[in-house]
Amino acid sequence: MRRTPVPVAALTETVSDEWRKSSHSGPNGCIEYTELSARQRAIRDTKKRELGMIVFDSTSWRAFISGINTGVLRP
């Protein structure tokens, strides 16, 4: 049986200057996102930036966005 690789996300303190507010953010919660490289994206909590960010590889990012868009992941 062939195994399917699991998407990987990691918590990190990498710095980026080009953060954008997610259109899914509301008055009680704001998530920002940035493109770290052609193959990495990151999100962070605007109110708790000191906690760092979660970095996604390309596959994980697509799965994350798909989960939001289909309602699998919701606040």
Rank of each mutant, 00 (worst) to 15 (best):
T4D: 02
D17T: 08
R39W: 04
R20G: 12
Q40F: 02
I68S: 01
G71F: 08
L51Y: 13
T34W: 01
L73W: 04
L51C: 08
M53H: 15
R39F: 05
P5I: 02
A42I: 00
T4W: 03
Y33C: 01
P75H: 13
L73C: 03
D57N: 08
A38G: 09
L73F: 06
L36Q: 04
T59K: 02
D17K: 13
I65C: 12
P7L: 07
I43W: 00
E32Q: 14
R62Q: 03
I43M: 03
L51R: 10
R74G: 12
R3C: 05
S66Y: 00
E50V: 14
W19R: 07
I65Y: 03
V8F: 04
N28F: 07
S25H: 11
S16G: 09
R39I: 09
L11S: 09
G26Q: 08
A10W: 12
M53R: 12
I54K: 14
R2K: 09
T12Q: 07
A63L: 06
I31W: 06
T46M: 05
G26V: 13
A9C: 15
I31R: 10
C30H: 06
H24G: 11
K21S: 01
G71Q: 09
S22K: 02
F64D: 15
T46F: 05
A42Q: 00
D57M: 14
R20Q: 13
T70W: 07
S37W: 01
T70P: 09
M53I: 07
W19L: 03
S60Y: 02
L36E: 00
L73M: 04
R44A: 11
N28D: 11
M1P: 12
I54T: 13
L73N: 04
K21D: 01
R3Y: 11
R3I: 13
E13K: 13
V8E: 02
W19E: 00
K21R: 14
S66H: 02
W19P: 01
D45K: 04
P27L: 12
P7W: 02
N28W: 07
A10E: 02
R74Q: 09
E32P: 12
S66Q: 08
T14N: 11
T4V: 04
A10F: 10
P27C: 10
T4M: 02
D57G: 14
T46I: 06
S37K: 01
R2C: 15
H24N: 09
R20D: 07
D17I: 11
A63M: 10
S66R: 00
R41V: 06
A42C: 00
V55L: 09
D57W: 13
R41M: 11
V15N: 12
G67I: 00
R74D: 10
K21G: 01
N69K: 14
S16A: 14
E18C: 14
F56H: 04
T4I: 03
S37A: 11
E32V: 11
V8I: 12
E32R: 15
R3Q: 08
C30N: 02
T14K: 11
A9H: 12
S66C: 00
I43Q: 01
R3T: 13
R3D: 06
R44S: 09
Q40C: 06
